[in-house]
């Protein structure tokens, strides 16, 4: 995957998405967006409500089909096999079933993947360890539908982490989450970054995660309007209607040209 021009010691990106287009119910939601994430890099995807950032991550993990563009994971076109090394945290318990299930059962399901239809030996131990990473091992035998929003979110993050992913994709993990869960997650994120996991995270506000973010990508109306250092003025970027037309600071020209994008003027 590494290009000949790439300087040494720069790790190859684990995720490269280019010109991704997605149409839902006949109308195009994403008009050709791209992203790159390297080992140990945390990329924040930002933008207002309805900007297309959640659709983009759902396209990255294969939950919605793309109409054009490419998504490469570990240097290969995203295949079910490649997805085995990806951890995904949806915005909420996306399709919680009609029956109760314990946090341990939900987290254990994260051990499955392409050709892994059974979790194998030691699954419970691994699942408990993942729950402990987020400080919720005491909830292992509780019904997930009866947990608070923050607790549910920590269970969903544990379900992604139990896979020992090398690429972690999270869709607004901090939305509606209590402070304790935010701190627990920020702590876990720091460890993952240090251990070389590439992280793409959809955020409304940088909040407790600000110090871990290496790069911000802003999507508005299905197009990328900014790629560069995360904005310093944190809160205002979450406001609906904030158009990101102004430059927060000079965009990272290397990143924008790499993605074939124009930085904001």
């Amino acid at each position: 995957m590494s290009s000949p021009a790439k300087p040494p010691n720069v790790p190859s990106p684990v995720l490269v998405a280019r010109d991704v287009r997605v149409s839902l119910q006949g109308s195009e939601i994403l008009h050709g967006v791209g992203i790159e994430a390297s080992p140990g890099e945390v990329v924040a995807l930002m933008g207002g409500n309805g900007s297309g950032k959640s659709t983009f991550v759902r396209a990255l993990v294969g939950a919605v089909p793309t109409t054009a563009g490419t998504v490469e994971i570990f240097g290969e076109p995203a295949s079910p096999q490649a997805r085995t090394r990806v951890g995904y945290v949806p915005q909420r318990m996306t399709a919680s079933g009609g029956l109760a299930a314990t946090a341990l059962e939900v987290v254990t399901s994260g051990l499955l993947g392409h050709r892994t239809l059974r979790p194998g030996r030691g699954a419970s131990t691994r699942a408990l360890k993942a729950l402990a990473t987020l400080g919720v091992e005491n909830l292992a035998h509780r019904d997930v539908s009866h947990l608070s929003g923050g607790q549910q979110q920590r269970v969903l993050i544990s379900r992604a982490l139990v896979r020992s992913p090398q690429l972690l994709i999270l869709d607004e993990p901090m939305a509606g989450v209590d402070l304790e869960s935010q701190v627990a997650f920020a702590h876990a994120l720091g460890h993952l970054k240090e251990s070389g996991v590439a992280i793409v995270i959809v955020l409304h506000e940088l909040g407790a995660l600000a110090r871990h973010i290496d790069q911000a990508v802003v999507i508005e109306h299905g197009c990328i309007t900014y790629v560069g250092k995360p904005p310093k003025d944190l809160g205002v970027h979450a406001l609906p209607g904030h158009d990101h037309e102004h430059a927060h600071e000079e965009p990272d020209q290397r990143s924008t040209s790499r993605l074939g994008l124009e930085g904001p003027q």
Binding site: A63, Q81, A82, R83, A95, S109, G110, L117
Partner: peptide, 23 residues
């Protein structure tokens, strides 16, 4: 019973199951 873990994953959260590469 044999496929219960995979069938649970798919019936519990289809979007996540798809992201893991499960068929």
């Amino acid at each position: 019973l044999g496929l219960r873990p995979a069938l649970f994953a798919v019936t519990h959260d289809q979007e996540f199951a798809r992201s893991t590469g499960l068929p």
